[in-house]
Structures are given as C-alpha cells and as structure tokens.
C-alpha cells in the first residue's frame, strides 16, 4: 500500500519479484485483494488524506496479519519531519512488525525483512 511515497520503494518491491531476485521461489506473490493477503507492505509516510484508507485496508486483512514498512520515510518520517500534511510515521497509525530502512531499500534487504516477518509469524502460531 502506497501511503504517500515517491514510488521508488514500490519499484524496488517489483524488482524483488522480477527474475533476478524472484521472491516467488519462497511462495511469495503480490495479491490483488487485501482479503487474500498475509502481510501489508506500506511504503511512504502516512499523509493526512490517506490515514483513514490505510486503516480500512488494514482491517480488511484477515488474521493473523503482519505489517512491513518499507523505506526510511515510513519508518521515521524521513525528510518530512516538519511537514503539516503528514500524519506521522506508519507506527503511529498501525502496529508495525518489521521495518526495512533505506531510500529505497535494496531487494536483498526487502527479502531479508520478509524472512524476519516469516519468523515472527511462525512464533505467533506457537
């Protein structure tokens, strides 16, 4: 879910799915509906405008679910510290499980973060 990012993180997510890194070899793929998702990827700081929408999408994901923040803006507010249009970093709105910092993070970092999320999900099951 893009919550006001510059699209660089989204392009890196796509690069993760492409032949060079191929996230599908771990069974990971992008799904079209939040109802089919296990993990919500959030890129970018949350703007005031999109705050309600991201909460709505988060509630549509069935339990157990995780939130992964991709990029520096989402993790810390990045360069938008003083901006009047920003509702804050993602963890002010949603319970975040994994942060993947970087501007944008490399695909290796994204795969590592997803592996961390996976470990957390396995712990939740026990």
């Amino acid at each position: 879910m893009n919550t006001g990012s510059c699209n660089a993180c989204d392009i890196e997510i796509l690069a993760t799915l492409m032949p060079r890194y191929d996230a599908e070899r771990f069974g990971i793929k992008l799904v079209g509906s939040p109802r089919h998702a296990d993990v919500l990827l959030v890129t970018g700081t949350v703007t005031e405008k999109i705050k309600d929408n991201i909460l709505q999408v988060y509630e549509q994901v069935p339990e157990p679910k995780l939130v992964i923040v991709i990029g520096g803006c989402g993790s810390t507010k990045g360069v938008f510290q003083e901006s009047y249009a920003m509702a804050g970093p993602v963890d002010a709105i949603l319970p975040v499980d994994v942060y993947i910092p970087g501007c944008p993070p490399r695909p290796e970092a994204i795969i590592y973060g997803i592996a961390k999320a996976w470990e957390k999900l396995e712990k939740l099951q026990k």
Binding site: P19, R25, G27, P64
Partner: peptide
C-alpha cells in the same frame, strides 16, 4: 526465474486453513 516449489499450492491451502 527459479519459481516456487511444486508443492506450493498445498502449502497455500494449509496456510489458508489457519487464517
């Protein structure tokens, strides 16, 4: 690409059972 293991759809079904 390398692609998922052939048993991936079975894992998916088992995962959906817990959701």
């Amino acid at each position: 690409r390398i692609g998922p293991p052939i048993a991936q759809p079975i894992y998916d079904i088992l995962k959906l059972k817990q959701k």
